[in-house]
Computed example of a mutant assay.
Amino acid sequence: MQTKVSNANRHSGIVIRSRTSTMMLSMFATLASFYVAGRLWQDAEERVLLTKELDRITGQGHSAISVDDTLKIIACREQKKKLSALEMELVAARQEGFVSSHLPEKNSISNKRPLVVIGILTGFSHKSKRDAIRKAWMGAGKVLKKIEDEKGIIARFVIGRRYHFFCFAIFHFFFFNCSLLEVILVVAVSLRFELSCSSNRGDSLDRSIDNENKETNDFLILENHVEALEEQPNKTKSFFAYAAENWDADFFAKINDDVYLNIDALGNTLAGYVDKPRVYVGCMKSGEVFSEQSHRWYEPDWWKFGDGKTYFRHASGEMFVVSKALAKFISINR
């Protein structure tokens, strides 16, 4: 009887120990599972962070980096190391007196691509405004050249030519029903006037601009544009077209001659859009056209906008900027 009891106790003890062992193993397995899962999760997060960091450094965005791209990055790093070593050797050679005559000086003219070409729309009688702009932010002479070389910002006053008597006569013949005899008289007077002028084109206003430009060399004269208030949109288009054909800049800006510009702030702002090919920075105008003369915002040319009497959406304002691609588009489609 005692043997049976002892056997039963021994058996129950074995069962308890086996259950305890099973529970311990289960707890250990659970903890191990949590540990492994945590490590895998941490490794996954680290891989994501590393991928994003590599994308940011190499400029690949959210796309995966291929083997070719990785090899290119490694090659660039090697070239950078070689370049640094060559620069150190060059500095050491200069210290020893070995300086090549072909090396450019520090103050030599930079051939870097201009950031922006600024066209300042001005008029014949606005010399005081031009002088104020030169003193305020544009500069003149060596200062203007320094801004162009160091900051890549080119500024020019934009102006057309005087409204000539011949154009005036033709305009009045078609729009004011002048007699042909009056037109012939006006044309004859204009021809006699131009023959009596000096080699400078146009009247005294044109010559004054030419003389001012000889002193300052900061004008962009649109020879085929006639200065008139109603021709301001065409003047802006002509500037963009001319500038895009003559300067390989990233941006082209139109500004009026009564605006004082912070060129450093402009440069910093435009630098953030260099990688975007089609950019417009400025205001857009649209809305109702008012035909009543008593209205504050009376539009003299209200009849040009049709029955709807609404402005089509267009660039407007004292200043706006377009990228090179848009300036080229204007040049092709003007």
Rank of each mutant, 00 (worst) to 15 (best):
N9T: 12
S12E: 08
G13F: 10
R17P: 02
S18W: 06
T22A: 15
M23W: 11
L25T: 11
A32T: 10
F34S: 00
Y35K: 05
G38A: 00
L40Q: 14
E46M: 07
R47Q: 11
V48Y: 04
K52C: 04
I57M: 00
V67L: 10
D69G: 03
E78L: 10
K81Y: 11
M88P: 00
E89A: 04
E89R: 01
L90Y: 08
A93Q: 10
S101A: 14
K106G: 14
S108P: 04
S108E: 13
R113H: 10
P114A: 11
V116H: 09
V117F: 09
L121S: 06
L121K: 01
T122L: 13
G123D: 06
G123H: 12
H126L: 12
K127T: 13
D131L: 11
A132Y: 05
K142F: 09
K145P: 08
G160D: 02
H164P: 14
I170F: 05
F174K: 15
F175E: 14
E182Y: 14
V183Q: 11
L185C: 03
V189T: 05
S198N: 06
D203G: 07
D203Y: 03
E212P: 06
L222V: 02
N224L: 03
H225P: 04
Q232C: 09
K237Y: 07
F239Q: 01
Y242R: 06
E245I: 02
D248T: 00
D250R: 07
D250S: 15
F252A: 01
D258V: 08
V259K: 03
Y260G: 00
A265R: 11
L266V: 15
G267Q: 13
A271K: 12
Y273F: 15
Y280C: 02
S286R: 07
G287L: 10
G287D: 12
Q293R: 07
S294Q: 03
Y298R: 02
P300L: 02
W303V: 09
G306Q: 06
K328I: 07
K328V: 08
